[in-house]
Amino acid sequence: MVQKLTKEQCQRREAFLQKKKQKGKPAQSASQRNAIQVLVTNVTQEHLEPQELYPLYSLRWQVELLFKTWKSLFEIDNVRAMKQERFECHLYGTLIRILLSSMMAFQCRYFLYQKHAMEGSEYKGIQQAKQSLPFLARAISTGLSLSSM
């Protein structure tokens, strides 16, 4: 699907590019490319209207980024051969680590945005939360507060 963007969408895209602080002035061809949007799918128009495609495409992209983060940080694609029961325990443990790290990262990113109007990277947030989990587990098991560590 090729779609011409509205003036408002073009302005938002231009503002985003300016925020990235590209050196020099973009070429006219770059501005023309910013005026269109190309989404590739194998879904036919009988099944999905072009206006309905963008929200789904955007959501799918967020899911792809999240799985890429999990794959990179938690190595969910590398599993050794083992008994099914052990694999299930390993899987559940990994899913719990992912859940806790994602929740911690979300709260930290939310706090950062609320207090400093800054956005943090999902990847870096989950990475920092994952590294903090052993300290959190030790604090919980020993009854210490995190501020005393």
Rank of each mutant, 00 (worst) to 15 (best):
M1R: 06
M1T: 12
V2G: 00
Q3S: 06
Q3T: 11
L5Y: 09
T6W: 08
T6G: 12
Q9N: 12
Q9A: 13
C10Q: 13
E14Q: 09
Q18C: 10
K19T: 07
K20T: 01
K20C: 06
K21F: 08
K23Q: 12
K23V: 12
K23L: 11
G24Q: 01
K25R: 08
K25Q: 12
K25L: 07
Q28H: 05
S29P: 01
S29I: 04
S29C: 06
A30T: 14
S31F: 05
N34T: 04
A35G: 12
A35T: 03
I36K: 09
Q37H: 06
Q37K: 08
V38H: 00
L39T: 11
L39I: 15
L39C: 08
V40G: 05
T41S: 15
T41C: 07
N42F: 04
V43R: 11
V43M: 11
L48S: 04
L48H: 05
P50T: 12
Q51C: 10
L59A: 06
L59M: 11
E64L: 07
L65M: 07
F67Y: 12
K68Q: 14
K68A: 10
W70G: 02
W70E: 01
K71V: 07
L73A: 05
D77T: 10
N78I: 10
N78P: 04
R80L: 07
K83M: 08
Q84D: 14
E85L: 13
F87C: 09
F87Q: 06
H90Q: 11
Y92T: 14
T94F: 01
L95D: 06
I96A: 15
I96N: 09
L99V: 14
L99P: 02
M103Q: 15
A105M: 04
A105Q: 03
C108D: 09
C108K: 03
R109P: 02
Q114P: 02
H116V: 09
A117I: 08
G120Q: 01
S121P: 08
E122R: 02
Y123I: 04
Y123R: 09
I126M: 11
Q127M: 12
K130S: 10
S132T: 06
S132D: 10
S132A: 15
F135I: 06
L136I: 15
L136N: 01
L136Y: 06
A137M: 08
A139D: 00
S141W: 00
L144E: 07
S145C: 08
S148L: 07
M149H: 02
M149R: 01
